[in-house]
C-alpha cells in the first residue's frame, strides 16, 4: 500500500513537461516549444516500476498458491525462506491418485473423492455451457430478428438477474428441486439451475452481437432458399463466434466455480470440486499443500480461458458499463 501512496509524487518528475505550471498562461508563440502532436504521455522508468509492483501484487497470492501446492507439509511449516524448497508433485499425486496410471508410493490410502468431483465438475460445467449457449443463441436471435419482446425487457431482466445474490435462491431451489422436481442429487438438477441463472446474461450479450450481423446477408441466404433454421445455423452462428466465446467462458466459469447451490443440491456422488474443497477444510491441521493442489486444479480452466480470451472476458465483465 505504501508503494502506491508514494507513487504520484515520484511519478511526477518522470512525466514530460507537457503541462505548464498552473496559472501561467500559454500563448500561441509558446506552442512550438512543446513537442508537436503528442497524443499521449510517454511512460518513464518510474512508471514501469509502479506497473511491476502492481503486477506483483496481483500475481503474488496466485504464485504463492502455486509454490505451496508444490511443497511438502514439512517445508510449509518450516521457517526457512519461502522459495528455498525442493518442489514435488506429491500433493497432486495425492489428490489425483484415483485417476493416475501408476500408484504413487507415498499415498497409503487413496481417497477417490476429489477425482470423482473433478469428473462431476467437468460434466456439469460443460453440459450447462452447451445448453445455455444453444438455448440462449436461439432466443437472442428471435429477439433481434423477429422483434420479439422488447430489447429493453432483456436488458432489464439481465440487470435484475445480476442483482440477485445466489444465496437468495437457496431456499426455493432446495424446496422445489427436492420435493417437486425430484432433481436433488442429480446432474440435471444443478444444470437446470446454472442454465437458468446464466440465460439472461447470455441472451443479453448475444443479442448485441447478432444485431451487428448485416441483414442483407441473411436475406441473400433466404433468397437462395434457406429456411430460418438454416439461416440461423449456417449464416448467423459463424458470424457471432466472438460473442459465443464470451458467453461460453462466462457460463462455464460460473458453473465451474459455483459453490453454495451445488452444496445444497448435490450429494456424495455428484458433488463438484468447490463443494469438496469446502468440506475438506477443517478448523485445524489443514494439509495446505494438498488443499492448494486442489485449488490449483480448480483454478486452471479459468486461468487458461483468461490467457486465451482476455478481451472477450472484459467485454463480458463490462457489459452494461460501456454501452448504456
Amino acid at each position: 500500500m505504501t508503494d502506491q501512496a508514494t507513487g504520484p509524487g515520484r511519478a511526477r518528475p518522470a512525466a514530460p513537461p507537457a503541462a505548464p505550471p498552473a496559472g501561467v498562461p500559454v500563448r500561441a508563440e509558446d506552442a512550438p516549444v512543446a513537442p508537436p502532436r503528442r497524443r499521449r504521455r510517454e511512460a518513464g522508468p518510474v512508471f514501469y516500476v509502479i506497473i511491476a509492483l502492481l503486477v506483483m501484487m496481483a500475481l503474488g497470492p496466485i504464485l504463492l498458491m502455486v509454490t505451496t501446492s508444490l511443497k511438502l507439509q514439512v517445508d510449509i511449516v518450516s521457517s526457512a525462506p519461502g522459495l528455498l524448497f525442493a518442489p514435488t508433485l506429491q500433493n497432486y499425486e495425492t489428490v489425483l491418485c484415483d485417476v493416475l496410471w501408476y500408484e504413487p508410493e507415498h499415498v497409503r490410502f487413496c481417497d477417490p473423492t476429489f477425482s470423482r468431483a473433478l469428473g462431476n465438475s467437468l460434466i456439469v460445467a460443460t453440459v450447462s455451457t452447451v445448453l445455455t449457449l444453444l438455448i440462449g443463441t436461439m432466443a437472442a436471435y428471435a429477439i433481434v430478428r423477429f422483434r420479439f419482446m422488447g430489447r429493453d425487457a432483456v436488458s432489464l431482466g439481465t440487470l435484475l438477474m445480476r442483482m440477485v445474490p445466489p444465496a437468495v435462491l437457496l431456499v426455493p431451489i432446495f424446496g422445489i428441486w427436492t420435493f417437486q422436481y425430484g432433481l436433488n442429487d442429480t446432474y440435471a438438477g444443478i444444470v437446470l439451475v446454472y442454465v437458468a441463472m446464466n440465460l439472461p446474461f447470455v441472451i443479453w450479450i448475444l443479442q448485441s452481437f447478432i444485431s451487428q450481423v448485416p441483414m442483407p446477408l441473411e436475406e441473400a441466404a433466404r433468397m437462395d432458399g434457406a429456411n430460418p433454421w438454416q439461416v440461423f445455423l449456417l449464416v448467423v452462428l459463424p458470424l457471432i463466434k466472438p460473442g459465443l466465446a464470451a458467453a461460453a467462458i462466462f457460463t462455464f466459469r460460473i458453473a465451474w466455480n459455483e459453490f453454495i447451490l451445488a452444496n445444497v443440491l448435490l450429494g456424495r456422488n455428484t458433488r463438484t470440486v468447490p463443494v469438496t474443497i469446502v468440506n475438506s477444510l477443517t478448523e485445524h491441521n489443514i494439509d495446505w499443500g494438498v488443499i492448494m493442489a486442489t485449488g490449483m486444479l480448480l483454478a486452471v480452466p479459468p486461468v487458461i480461458f483468461t490467457l486465451l480470451a482476455s478481451r472477450q472476458i472484459i467485454t463480458g465483465m463490462t457489459a452494461g458499463a460501456v454501452k448504456g
Binding site: T68, F259, G295, L298
Partner: peptide, 21 residues
C-alpha cells in the same frame, strides 16, 4: 489486462483459500 483479470476469474473458493493461507 490479462494479469489483472486473473484474480477475478479464479473461483471465489480458491481466492478464500489463498487468503486464509
Amino acid at each position: 489486462r490479462t494479469v489483472f483479470i486473473l484474480p477475478m476469474m479464479i473461483a471465489p473458493i480458491v481466492v478464500g483459500l489463498i487468503w486464509r493461507y
